[in-house]
Design a protein around this nucleic acid. Structure first.
Lengths: 129, 129
DNA sequence: ATAACTATTGACATTAATAGAATAGAGTGT
DNA sequence: ACACTCTATTCTATTAATGTCAATAGTTAT
């Protein structure tokens, strides 16, 4: 049986874990780029940073996978953190050249999306009579 | 071979049809709800309306499919347009009760996303030195 | 009749996301 | 020593979402 389909998460206070949001998921990639660009860091702390942006609805495994894929694309690069920290070793990611290009692309996309959303919200106020 | 993966569409002026945008796609559903709520209409004209919102990057068949899925969810309902118009018969969609709930949900989501995007853009200005 | 525009549907391939378990180190308490 | 918790990352299976293209079809104009 399908776990969800279009529109799942809507109305879902029922017994559901947490409200899913496809829009949030689509913001994950730029959010990670921006966070990593601001300060190189590792998955686990990025997870916490995302929460501050209201992007806590994305599953941790998605975050880690996205990081690895961005590394495959050579947008970011990781080194194992040598600082003795609590817990197992962690990968610290930082932006590299291609990632800066990607970031520029994403900044334009975000600005466009912002504009579109504003237009949509405004339009939503005008109803037919 | 994979046609695309994470980050495809980036830098893609090459020979590609039109710039793809995952963010735009994620705005499709709320955009359709808002447009249909403003005025009942059919797929083909919605296609044109979307363009006005900068959402022309989504493929027409995706728009039609989304409409049918939203009808399955009973967010919208369609009737065959009886007006003699140019071309084949067309389905005119209008919002029904559940669709209004979905619209309210989406309006909150859009407002949240807008806020997140603004925070991200602002953060992107502060770089490490 | 054929081309162009309007309009929608269907099928198939591909990509992405969710969920949850597995693995593992370090620190704390008993 | 033992369990427990927190930190940290990876893997696999399943399901959902998207991209893409072709097919179908009515209407109008040439």
């Amino acid at each position: 049986m399908p776990r969800h389909g279009r529109g799942w998460g809507i109305g879902g206070g029922e017994g559901r874990r947490r409200n899913y949001s496809p829009l949030n998921t689509s913001l994950l990639e730029p959010a990670l780029l921006i966070l990593i660009n601001t300060e190189p860091s590792h998955g686990y702390s990025l997870l916490a940073d995302l929460e501050a942006f209201g992007l806590s609805t994305v599953h941790p495994s998605v975050v880690y996978r996205t990081l690895r894929e961005m590394e495959d694309l050579e947008w970011i690069h990781s080194d194992w953190d040598t600082d003795q920290s609590q817990g197992p070793p962690r990968r610290t990611y930082h932006l590299i050249a291609k990632g800066e290009e990607a970031l520029e692309y994403w900044k334009r996309e975000l600005a466009n999306a912002n504009q579109t959303i504003e237009q949509l919200l405004e339009k939503s106020l005008s109803r037919k009579i």
